[in-house]
Design a protein around this nucleic acid. Sequence first.
DNA 1: AGGCTATTGATAATGATTGTCAAAACCACG
DNA 2: CGTGGTTTTGACAATCATTATCAATAGCCT
Lengths: 131, 131
Amino acid sequence: MKRNTWQREAVREALDGTDGFISAQALHSSLHATGSPIGLATVYRALSDLSEQGEADSLQSPDGESLYRACSTTGHHHHLICRNCGLTVEIGAEPVETWAQQVASEHGFTQAAHVVDVFGLCANCTRLAAV
Amino acid sequence: MKRNTWQREAVREALDGTDGFISAQALHSSLHATGSPIGLATVYRALSDLSEQGEADSLQSPDGESLYRACSTTGHHHHLICRNCGLTVEIGAEPVETWAQQVASEHGFTQAAHVVDVFGLCANCTRLAAV
DNA sequence: AGGCTATTGATAATGATTGTCAAAACCACG
DNA sequence: CGTGGTTTTGACAATCATTATCAATAGCCT
């Protein structure tokens, strides 16, 4: 059975209060900074639970870390991420969904899953970078 | 200056002779299996070099390993990968390219890059899995 | 309240990747 | 064909994120 603990709740809230993606390590530090004695292993467990239950999304940073994010929509969606400031926009991707399915079946593949993330510079960072 | 060594050549050839993506570790084992005394660190270095020079593509497997592949086309393309046997098909993704650009600009993002990979089970593995 | 069991957390273990550094290999050049 | 200066190699240690271990704790049901 699934039990409710303050630790899990703390992780959920910390995620909610964070803009963009954050690593398990960073989230743990952040919690410690606010005085929470939560353990690192617990943060990892809570995050992978949340991710499994669809309450959080996860992706891998270019250098191999797993990053997590609390997502407002529970359905399937993708992300548009500013590579400079981390700002993240949730985006639907209907055209991509159908395209992925089609390409997969064209080649005889089944159980197609896909990784689709768009990295760029948000309007703000674009302006700053132009200077 | 960049020097040519048989080790670098060996890594390049091993990559060429491999279907689909392969991890640095696996490539190293594979080389050892053929009698090559090449060192693990060297394989890592050679792979990251090849990847930087655009002679190889790299991506991260769902469990965080870095995988490499020699790609036939040097242009921009994506991959359809069998998550069981590693079989890989290079796919163009025109619809996705335009979609990504469009979504990015809709949100004021510039310099949009994207990660698009489709994982599934190839026809063969699908059949095996059905048993 | 009592008991059963899931969860926690400190720490060890794992596993991929990168750093270190002396020895060996490469590449002009004479 | 040697020689010298540098790059590259490779064995091994170090790092870093993540996962496993396991006794102690804390939830939840009755």
